[in-house]
């Protein structure tokens, strides 16, 4: 008796549509990915109860009032300063005294934008030691 020879069929996974599936997934991830990073001005806050006594000559107080005007508090008086002049002034003081700590004190009514702009100017001037004083209530 002649045995019937089986037809050998090679099992194959169809790969023709593999690329299509993969591209579909790519498109999904492309659209759901948000590439914009968080960016801004970084600052380390001092821990609670961590207050240091600093010599008066090493502190430069920058004040912002409710009308978003900038001033430097010195020798018990406020010296108003144009916003554009702030950077140069801080730069000058930093070269005079490398240990200078810039303290930003802002009134509660000042807008946040002014505060951020002042902070930005201080960073542009090269100040690394910046402190934020909490306003009086």
């Amino acid at each position: 008796m002649r045995s019937q020879k089986r037809v050998r069929v090679l099992p194959e996974i169809p790969t023709a549509s593999m690329a299509d599936i993969a591209f579909l997934l790519i498109v999904f991830f492309l659209t759901s990915t948000s590439m914009n990073q968080d960016k801004g001005l970084s600052l380390y806050l001092p821990a609670m109860g961590e207050s240091k006594e600093v010599a008066k000559k090493n502190i430069c107080n920058v004040w912002i009032n409710e009308a978003d005007e900038v001033a430097i508090y010195e020798e018990d008086q406020l010296k108003p300063l144009a916003f554009a002049a702030l950077k140069g002034e801080i730069e000058r003081r930093l070269t005079e005294n490398g240990k200078l700590i810039v303290s930003v004190k802002s009134e509660r009514g000042a807008t946040y934008r002014t505060f951020v702009n002042v902070l930005d100017e201080l960073k542009l001037a090269g100040a690394t030691r910046i402190s934020i004083a909490s306003p009086e209530k």
Partner: peptide, 20 residues
């Protein structure tokens, strides 16, 4: 904003970034 910073200090979340 200052009040929020104060609260963050109380929570010891000290690394802050002002988003711009």
């Amino acid at each position: 904003v200052s009040d929020v910073l104060e609260e963050l200090r109380r929570a010891e979340a000290l690394r802050v970034n002002f988003a711009t």
